[in-house]
Each structure stands twice: as structure tokens, then as C-alpha cells.
Simulated assay, not measured.
Amino acid sequence: MTESPASDGPPRALLIAAIVVAVSVLITVLGIAASRQRSPQQRPVAIPSIPAPQADSAHCHDLLNALPQQLGDFRRAPTVDPTPPGTAAWRAEPDAEPVVLRCGLERPTDFVVGTPLQVVDEIQWFRVGDSGAGSPAAYAEDQGRSTWYAVDRPVYVALTLPAGSGPTPIQQISGQIARTMPAQEPVPAPAR
């Protein structure tokens, strides 16, 4: 009897196909790993410290704990230590200007009786105009950004938005504020 060499193992074509599939999977996995290493990490956002006497309040803690990881195209970003209490930041791209939230601030000095407010999803917002140095608005204005204060809650919440950010960040933050803080009548300063 003569033995057939084909009966000693799997067919040669099947063996070649298995090797090709294994190599393809390995190349794909290595390619994905390499592209993740090349994609830039988000730089931490430096948030300047300003007076925020109620930043450690229960209202601010509740809001910060409820903040989403994403605001439209903006993803939660790390912050430079020491991070001021009551703050958070998001970025659309690793080096893009951030959205910055501050909770527990003092009443904005420009918020006086008769000041126009804008309502976004149940929250009354005041857009800060010209302000002194060291305020969120002064920080924002030198970068073409705008700062809005939620003025109808137990603590003031400021949201600084980059130019062209669209309505999504303020809408989503409005929803979180409405869910975590009770509404109250705004208390503007007497008109000057």
C-alpha cells in the first residue's frame, strides 16, 4: 500500500488562508494601536481662580456631579492643578478653546434691575458685558468668547463659550442646572 501525502494534515489552501487571516488581524490591531498613540491627547485647561464664595456649596456639588462628559461636539477636558472649586471644562479638539463652567460665583456687577435676560430651557441667563480684570468675562473677551450667568438659581453659574460654539453647550448645561437646582426669582442689583 502506498500512502497519500495529502492525508497527513489539513489541505495546503486552508493552511495558507488561516495564516493570511491571522496576519491581517495582527496588522489591523497594530494599526489601530499606532493611530491611537499618534492622536494628540487633550491638553489640560488652565482655569484662572476668581472669587467663588459658594463653589463648595451643596448646589455646586450636585451640579458638578451631574455634568455630562459631552456637550455637543465638546468633550470633558482635564484641568490644570490646582483646579478652582466649582469648575469644569470641555473641548471640541485637543487644542481648541474650551467651554468653561464655574459654579458659586458672586453676582455679576453688570446684573442690575432692567438688564435683559434670555431664557434657555427654563434657565434665565444674563450675558456679561464689559467687566473688570479677573472676571470670567474679562478672561473670555480677550479670546473672542462670551460669558453667560444663570441668575435664577440659589447660586450663580457662569458658562464661558468659545466663539462659534453654537447653542448646544448652553442648552445641555441649562438642563443640568434645572434638574439639580431649584428655581428662584433673579435678584439683580439696583440700577445705577
Rank of each mutant, 00 (worst) to 15 (best):
residue 77 A to H: 09
residue 154 P to W: 11
residue 114 G to M: 10
residue 161 L to Q: 09
residue 141 E to S: 15
residue 18 A to N: 13
residue 41 Q to D: 12
residue 26 L to E: 04
residue 7 S to K: 13
residue 168 T to H: 09
residue 6 A to R: 11
residue 115 T to Q: 07
residue 158 A to T: 14
residue 26 L to V: 11
residue 58 A to N: 13
residue 163 A to F: 03
residue 25 V to R: 01
residue 144 G to P: 01
residue 191 A to W: 08
residue 52 A to N: 09
residue 111 F to L: 10
residue 161 L to A: 10
residue 40 P to N: 02
residue 57 S to W: 01
residue 58 A to I: 12
residue 70 Q to G: 06
residue 172 Q to W: 04
residue 158 A to W: 03
residue 68 P to T: 13
residue 62 D to M: 07
residue 57 S to Y: 01
residue 84 P to T: 05
residue 14 L to S: 10
residue 174 S to V: 06
residue 184 Q to T: 01
residue 124 Q to E: 15
residue 17 A to M: 09
residue 31 G to V: 05
residue 186 P to R: 10
residue 96 A to H: 04
residue 188 P to N: 08
residue 59 H to T: 05
residue 93 E to V: 04
residue 32 I to E: 07
residue 81 D to T: 14
residue 172 Q to D: 15
residue 97 E to K: 13
residue 21 V to C: 02
residue 104 G to P: 03
residue 123 I to D: 14
residue 178 A to K: 02
residue 19 I to Y: 02
residue 170 I to R: 03
residue 34 A to P: 01
residue 34 A to H: 07
residue 129 G to C: 07
residue 135 S to A: 00
residue 191 A to E: 11
residue 7 S to Y: 05
residue 177 I to D: 02
residue 86 G to R: 12
residue 144 G to L: 03
residue 171 Q to T: 06
residue 169 P to A: 14
residue 17 A to C: 08
residue 30 L to K: 06
residue 127 R to W: 00
residue 98 P to S: 12
residue 50 I to Y: 12
residue 137 A to C: 08
residue 86 G to W: 09
residue 140 A to K: 02
residue 51 P to D: 05
residue 102 R to I: 01
residue 102 R to E: 06
residue 112 V to Y: 06
residue 99 V to T: 13
residue 35 S to R: 11
residue 25 V to N: 00
residue 158 A to E: 14
residue 36 R to E: 09
residue 96 A to V: 04
residue 39 S to C: 01
residue 71 L to Y: 04
residue 141 E to Q: 14
residue 169 P to W: 08
residue 125 W to Q: 00
residue 98 P to Q: 11
residue 105 L to P: 00
residue 165 S to M: 10
residue 128 V to H: 11
residue 40 P to V: 00
residue 170 I to L: 03
residue 25 V to F: 01
residue 94 P to N: 11
residue 82 P to L: 14
residue 117 L to P: 02
residue 27 I to H: 00
residue 190 P to L: 05
residue 113 V to S: 12
residue 139 Y to K: 08
residue 57 S to M: 07
residue 2 T to Q: 14
residue 122 E to L: 06
residue 117 L to S: 05
residue 55 A to K: 06
residue 45 V to C: 13
residue 21 V to S: 00
residue 143 Q to R: 08
residue 161 L to I: 09
residue 145 R to T: 06
